[in-house]
Amino acid sequence: MTILALDIVTTALILFVVAAGLMVILGVMKLINFAHGAFLTVGGYTAMVVTDAGLSPWLAAPAALAFGFGAGLLIERVIVRPLYDRPLDAILATWGLGIVITQLITLGFGREVQFAASPMTGTLPLGDTEYSAWRLVVSGVALAVGAGLTALLYLTRFGLNARAVIMNEPLARGLGIDSGRVRATTFGLGAGLACAAGALITPLLSVDPNMGLPWLVNSFMLVLVSGVSIPSLMLASLLLGGAQVLVSSFVSPILGGMTIVVLAAALLRINPKGLSLG
C-alpha cells in the first residue's frame, strides 16, 4: 500500500517535471511545442555524454539545462518566430523540428538503446519500506522546479513581464516590455527545462532516439488539461498520473499506457477549461 502511494506520488511528480517545459512555452507564447519530446531525448543524450566523459552524473541535468537553454534561443529565432500568428502551423513546424533532432541524434549516436550512469542507485529506507532512491530524488527536484518556477513568475522582473505578456501582449508592448525578448527567453527556458527533465528521467530508463515520444503525448495532454498554471499542472499530474498507476497495477499495463490520453480527452470534452484553477 505504501509502495502504491509512493508510486502514485513519484509518477505524478515525474510527469510534472517532464511537462513543465511544455507548459512554460504554452503559457507565455500560446504555442504548442511538439519538439518537446525531442528536447527530452536531447537531455537523455546529454546525460550520456556527460557520464561517458567521466564527469559526475550529478552534472548531467545542469548541463542539459544549459545546453537546452542555448539551443532554445537559437531555435526560437530561426523557426518559431515566424509562426506566432499561425498556432496550428507552429505545432507542425515544431514536430518537423523534432524529426530533424531525432534524425541528427540517430546519425550521431546510432539507433540502438544505450544507458547512462545514474548518480544514485539502490533504494532508500522510508518508514517500514524501501523505495527507489533516484525516483525520490527526481520527485524532490520536481517540487523544487515547481517552487522555482512559481518564484520566477511571481517574484522577479522577468516573471512580471512574462505575466504581462500572457495577459495582454499588445498592452504589455505599449508599456515598453520587449515581448520578443520575453518570448525568446521563455522558449529557451522551456527547452532547457525539457532537456533537464530528459536528463533526470534517463537513469530510470534507457536512452534511444525515440525515448521522448511517449512522454510528449502525455505531457501535451496534461498541460492542456491543466490550463496554464503550476498548481493545476501539479493537480492534473497527480490525478491522471495516479489513474495511470492504478490502471497499470490493477487492470493492465497496456491500458495504463493510454489512461492519461483517454482521461484528458474526456475531461476536456466535459469541461473545455479542464482542471484550470484560475
Binding site: 502551423d89 513546424a93 518537423g96 524529426i99 530533424v100
Partner: peptide, 9 residues
C-alpha cells in the same frame, strides 16, 4: 524533416 520545417515556415 528539414524540408517540412522549411515549407511550413
Amino acid at each position: 524533416g528539414i524540408a517540412f520545417v522549411a515549407v511550413i515556415v
